[in-house]
Design a protein around this nucleic acid. Sequence first.
DNA 1: CATTATTGATCGGTTTTATCGATGGATGTG
DNA 2: CACATCCATCGATAAAACCGATCAATAATG
Lengths: 294, 294
Amino acid sequence: MELRQLRYFIKAKELLNFTEAARQLHISQSTLSQQIGQLEDELGVLLFDRLGKRITLTEAGRLFSGYALQSIHEAESGLQVLRDLNNMNTGQISIGLTYGLRPILAPALIRFMQTWPKITIQVVLGTSAELLDKLSHLELDFVLTFHEAEKEKQFKYQLLFESPMTLVMAPHMPLAKKKNVSLEAAAELPLALPAQGYSTRAFISHVLSQKNLSPNIALEINDINMLLEVIRSGEWYSILVRTSVKQEDGVVAVPITGKDMHRKAMIISMKETYEKKSVQSFYRLLKETSKSMG
Amino acid sequence: MELRQLRYFIKAKELLNFTEAARQLHISQSTLSQQIGQLEDELGVLLFDRLGKRITLTEAGRLFSGYALQSIHEAESGLQVLRDLNNMNTGQISIGLTYGLRPILAPALIRFMQTWPKITIQVVLGTSAELLDKLSHLELDFVLTFHEAEKEKQFKYQLLFESPMTLVMAPHMPLAKKKNVSLEAAAELPLALPAQGYSTRAFISHVLSQKNLSPNIALEINDINMLLEVIRSGEWYSILVRTSVKQEDGVVAVPITGKDMHRKAMIISMKETYEKKSVQSFYRLLKETSKSMG
DNA sequence: CATTATTGATCGGTTTTATCGATGGATGTG
DNA sequence: CACATCCATCGATAAAACCGATCAATAATG
C-alpha cells in the first residue's frame, strides 16, 4: 500500500470512471487499472464493482475511502507544516463560497493575492450543503456561508458579521424611502427570489412558513446579478441579505423588521486539522474586511 | 512522498541509527539513506542532523513525524477495517500493561488466544506514564493500568473494577486476622514496597503524604513476585492492591480503611481511532474476567 | 595518540516495478 | 447491427528501488 495508490483510488472513487481519472492523474488508463488491481489484491477485497463498463464503489471501497483520504491528508498536512516552518508561502487554498457572500470574498481575495503571490487559490461556488460536504471530505480549506442552524462537532465556526434581511427594489418605488418594512407587507408584494437551493431562499422560505405567510413569488432566478437587473426594472421586489447588494447595483435595500430577520456570515472549517499559515492569514483579512459590513 | 518513505523515516526516528533501522526494515543501509535523502529533497528540509556518525532529529523532523505517523496509521486502520469486514481475524494487538495488573490480563489472554488463534499479541510491560506515551504515539492498541488522575481528552477510559489497597503480610502475623487496618497503623510497620516508578508506589506515596505520614520503608523491590516472597518470610509488610495478590501466593491481604484507599483499574485507549473487532472482543473478555474482581 | 570499529553518504550495477501503447472483450448507444 | 466507450490484459520500456562496495568522518579502544 502506497500513497500513490491511495491517491489513484480516491480520484477513481470521485469520478467513478477510470479513463477520466487516469487522464486527470496524468497516467494511462492501463496504469490506473493495474494499480487499483494491485491495491485490491493487497487489501484482499474489491474496491469497485465492475458491472460491464460501469464501475461502482463496493461497501469495502466506501469504508476504505475515508481512511485512504485521511492518510493522504495527514501526509500533505505534514508537507504544509514544513513549508510554513520555512516560510515558503507556497501551496494552494481551496475556498467554498455561497453566492450570497461573493461581495465579501472579492476584496479580501485581492488583498490576499498581493501579500501571498505564490499561493494558488481555488474558489468553489455552491450551495451551503454541497460545500460543507466537500469540507468534511477535506476537499476545501474553509467555507464562507451564512449559517444559523446548530453547529456540528467536526466543524469550527467563526462569525464574520450579522447582516439584516432587506427588501430590495428600484430607487423610484414608493417603499424605497421607508426606514424599514414588515415581513407581512413584503409577502404581499410581487417577489423575484433566488432559486431553490440557494441558502438565502431556504432562509426566506423558513421565516415565512414560521409566520404562516404564503408569499407572492412571481419569479425565480438562478443568478443574483440577473435578479438585480430585473429588480431595477421596477416590476418586482426581492428579499436579500443587505451585504449581497452593493451601492453601485442601482437598487435600494430596506431592512425588514423582526428579531430573526438577520443572517450570520460564518467561516466554517474543520476542527482538529492543521491550518496553513496562509489560511490563518486569510481569516484575518476576511475579519478585517467584514468589520465595516453587517 | 510515499508511505514506504514515511515508514522508513519513522523507524529511523525511533532508533536514531540508520544501520540498525535498515536492519529492522530488512533493507540495506544504503537504501535507507537514499530514501530518507529523497524524502528530505521532496520536503525541502533536512529531517535529521548529521553530526558525523550520530544523527538527531531536526525541528522539522520532529514536526513532521507526527503527521507521518498519523498518515501510516490511517492507512493501516483502513486495512484493518477491511479485514474485520471480511472476518479475516488476522493481525496484531499491542497491549500496554502495568505490573500491578498482570494477574488480570493473564486469564483474559488465555481465553482470547483460544477464540482468536490467528491474532498475534504483543504485551508491553512498563510504567503507566511510559505506556500512555506509547499509546498516544499509536504504538499500542490499549493500556491496562490503575488510573485515578484526571482524564485526558485524547483518551477513552473504561473502568474495569475498583480494588482496595491492602496491607499484605505472612499468614501467621498478628494483624492477619483483623478485618481491616488503618493507614496510620500501616505506616508504623516495617514496609517492603514496590520500587519507585511503579504506579502503586506513586499512589502509596501520594496518600501517605496527604495524611502527613512518613512511612517506615525498610525495603524496595523491583519485582512483585520477589516482594511477595520476602513478605512470606514474616519480616516485613507491604501495601498492594488486593487484586495483585493471589490466593496461592501464601500471604494475607487486609484492607486498609479510608475512602480514597482503593484504585481504579482502567482500559485506556485512543479516542477517535478505529478499534479492531479483535480489540473490542478483548475488552469484553477483560470486563467479564473483571466481574469477580475488586 | 595511534589504531580500529562503526556510521552514514555516495557510486555503479542489478532487480523490481510502475508505466505505456496496443489489443480484446464487454456493454451500452444510435 | 454497427459503433463508440469502457476496463482488463499483455509485452515492452522506462523509472525506481535496491544492493554491495567503498569512502570519509567520527567514536571507541588500547
